[in-house]
């Protein structure tokens, strides 16, 4: 638990602008200058470790869960003899699932992701995040898979933990996307149908789509027993909409043109954007999906923080659920 509290502190400190802990983090602008995706991922992870000052390596998965009364047929190896000595009752020790984590990263490579107001696009940021997650989990001996999608699944690498798999993921991530329209619904359905074994599913996308459709598909995933974490990557300009002049706005995906007087349209934009974001968030909350929104000017280490936090919460929730069942 000590590790978890350290996480929390560190994460809270880094999010708080008054506490300057960014010295340890890497500025995304600097990071994106590194060409190799794997190198980027390693740098992010190093920064992440520097932030928490302690390796989370011996993580959360090998943890005692509960005692259960022995019933004939249970494996005698798990009898707690010391407890038997104290209480004269047979109890069997139960642990958290000892198997490795199976994580599938879903990366949106649609055309809207290619938008970027600064030096790099949302896609660049997103794939670095994906690489970081993949690298991090691989280092933990967990199996990592990758799904890239646009309006349908482009590439599917099933979760593996074997030599060379990391390189394949990196190669896949390094590939420049063809870039088409975003349609989250189709790919999520496909993933729900393909990834049968329960595991962690990390979705990295700008989620510029209808929240209703999204919530239905996320529901599919959840119902399959997957843990789902959604990272929403946005450009700062998409959040702020700090345009001033009237201009023809052109959609990068559809090429549609719209004459917009930015000053006039700004308020309306903010209102709609916030509403959309709230709908997304509430939909995720209802489904028990971790939802994190981030802009491309934020350090990438947060991705790992959020991921770990989500995992921790999942573990905690699981423990509570078990306790409730026991008491019941």
């Amino acid at each position: 638990m000590a590790t978890v509290s350290r996480f929390r502190n560190s994460q809270a400190a880094s999010r708080d602008p008054s506490v300057d802990s960014r010295g340890a983090m890497i500025d995304p602008h600097t990071l994106m200058r590194i060409k190799s995706l794997q190198l980027r991922a390693r740098k992010v992870m190093e920064g992440f470790f520097a932030g928490i000052h302690r390796s989370p390596y011996h993580g959360f998965s090998v943890e005692f869960s509960e005692y259960r009364e022995y019933s004939p047929g249970d494996d005698l190896r798990y009898l707690d003899w010391k407890l038997f000595a104290r209480t004269d009752r047979y109890y069997v020790k139960q642990f958290e699932d000892e198997t490795n984590l199976r994580c599938t990263v879903l990366l949106d490579t649609s055309k809207s992701m290619s938008y970027g107001s600064g030096d790099f696009s949302k896609h660049e940021y997103a794939r670095t995040a994906a690489a970081t997650i993949a690298y991090f989990l691989t280092m933990q001996r967990d199996a990592v898979g990758l799904v890239t999608f646009e309006d349908k699944v482009v590439e599917y690498l099933p979760p593996r933990n074997r030599p060379g798999h990391m390189r394949r993921i990196m190669a896949e991530l390094s590939r420049e996307p063809a870039g088409k329209a975003t349609d989250l619904a189709g790919p999520l359905e496909e993933v729900a149908a393909t990834v049968r074994k329960r595991g962690l599913i990390v979705i990295i996308s700008d989620l510029l789509a209808s929240p209703e459709l999204l919530s239905t598909r996320l529901g599919y995933l959840r119902s399959c027993g997957h843990d789902v974490v959604v990272f929403r990557v946005l450009d700062p300009r998409e959040v702020k909409f700090d345009f001033e002049n009237a201009a023809i706005f052109r959609d990068v995906e559809s090429g549609k043109e719209l004459y917009v007087d930015a000053e006039v349209a700004k308020a309306n934009y903010h209102r709609r954007f916030e509403k959309h974001a709230q709908e997304l968030e509430s939909a995720c909350q209802d489904l028990g999906v971790d939802f994190h929104s981030m802009t491309t000017d934020e350090p990438l280490e947060f991705v790992l923080f959020e991921l770990l936090r989500a995992r921790m919460r999942r573990g905690r929730d699981q423990g509570r659920r078990n306790a409730r069942q026991r008491t019941a």
Partner: peptide, 22 residues
């Protein structure tokens, strides 16, 4: 009077509505 100054690429027009020249 107010002609568009240029064109701007944007990720999505889903939150925008056309504002006619005044």
């Amino acid at each position: 009077r107010r002609s568009p100054k240029g064109e701007v690429w944007f990720s999505s027009l889903m939150f925008l509505s056309p504002s006619p020249p005044r």
